[in-house]
Every structure is written in C-alpha cells, then in structure tokens.
C-alpha cells in the first residue's frame, strides 16, 4: 500500500514537470504561428485588399489549431456583426489566451495590435503589422532562450522533487 502511494506521488510530480516543460516548448511554437498569421493578414490586407473578416477566415484555414480557432471565432463574430472589432478582439483574447502557452507579453502585444486593426489606411496598417511583427520576433527569441535553458531542468526537477517527498514520507 505504501509503495503504491509512493509510486502515485512520483508519477504525479513527474507529470507536473513534463507539463511545465511542454508549456515551455509550446510557447515558441505558438509565437511562430502568430507571426505566420500576422504575415498572412498583412498579405491579405495589402495585396488582396480583403476585409478583415475574410482575411481572418483565410488565416484560420492556413494555421494549425489553437491559434486558428482564435481567428475563426473572430471571423464568425465579425460576420454576425455582434459588436465592433476592438470589443470582439478583446473578448476573444480574454477567452482564448488562458488556453494557450503564450505569456503576458504576447497577450499585451496582441491587445495593442487589435486596437490598431481597421483604424488606418493600408500603408499605416502595414506599418502597425510590421511593428507587432518585430515585437513578436523579440518575444520569440526570449521564449526560445527560456525553452533551451529551463526545458530539461523542469523535467528532471519534477522527478527529483517527487523522489525527495517520497523519501521524506517513507
């Protein structure tokens, strides 16, 4: 009985460690997807001169899932015209970002970017997208740095803490 408990505890803490490492691994990936999304939005706005609703729908088709559903939801809301874009954008960010691996920096960044969407003409809009893009670049660098430094540490630390607690309680 004692050993079963010890094993469960060990599995739980190891799992926590792996989950944290997973979070660290997913953050750069999702930032990269966001960058891709911004690029597509820019292309749609500048070259096809598509309305935002259509641009977001195209983005949602080309990007892997957690980010895609964000843009999909915004496109849907815009289509139904439930509210104006800044409100929708804020709402969807508040709804989706807790489920993503992204940090507060990226959230703030996207919120600021959302406030500029649809306010300017094409050249201005392009500049704003470029600005958000460079900010995301910086965030990506930082996220990669964190991933390399702490990814492995978190894993082994989870396992070792479990072992430690088991030994204490034995």
């Amino acid at each position: 009985m004692k050993w079963i408990g010890a094993l469960l505890l060990l599995i739980a803490t190891t799992w926590v460690g792996f989950e944290l490492a997973n979070q660290l691994n997913n953050r750069p990936k999702q930032i990269r997807q966001l960058k891709n999304a911004l690029q597509i939005v820019e292309a749609e706005i500048v070259y096809s001169q598509a309305p935002l609703e259509e641009a977001f729908r195209i983005v949602a088709k080309q990007i892997p899932n957690p980010i895609a559903s964000f843009f999909q939801a915004i496109s849907q809301e815009l289509l139904q015209q439930t509210a104006d874009l800044p409100t929708i954008w804020e709402e969807e960010i508040a709804r989706f970002f807790p489920n993503l691996a992204l940090g507060n920096d990226e959230k703030e960044l996207m919120q600021q970017f959302g406030r500029t969407l649809g306010q300017h003409d094409i050249t201005q809009q392009k500049k704003h997208i470029q600005l958000a893009f460079t900010h995301l670049d910086r965030a990506l660098e930082e996220a990669q740095d964190n991933q390399q430094r702490y990814g492995r540490m978190v894993k082994s630390l989870g396992f070792l803490t479990g072992l430690f607690i088991v030994l204490l309680l034995l």
Binding site: R149, Y150, M153, S156, L160, L163, F164, L167, L168, L170
Partner: peptide, 24 residues
C-alpha cells in the same frame, strides 16, 4: 531504515543542487 532514508535525501538534494547550479 533511518540511515538509508538520510542517505537517500542526501543524494537527491545533491542532484537537485547540481541541476540548479548547472542552469545558473
């Protein structure tokens, strides 16, 4: 048993120390 427990804690703490130190 107490001796072994203390030895185990020592080893684990040493490992945690090494890992944390390696990561700066």
């Amino acid at each position: 048993a107490v001796l072994f427990q203390i030895a185990g804690i020592g080893i684990i703490v040493a490992m945690i120390h090494t890992i944390l130190k390696q990561m700066g």
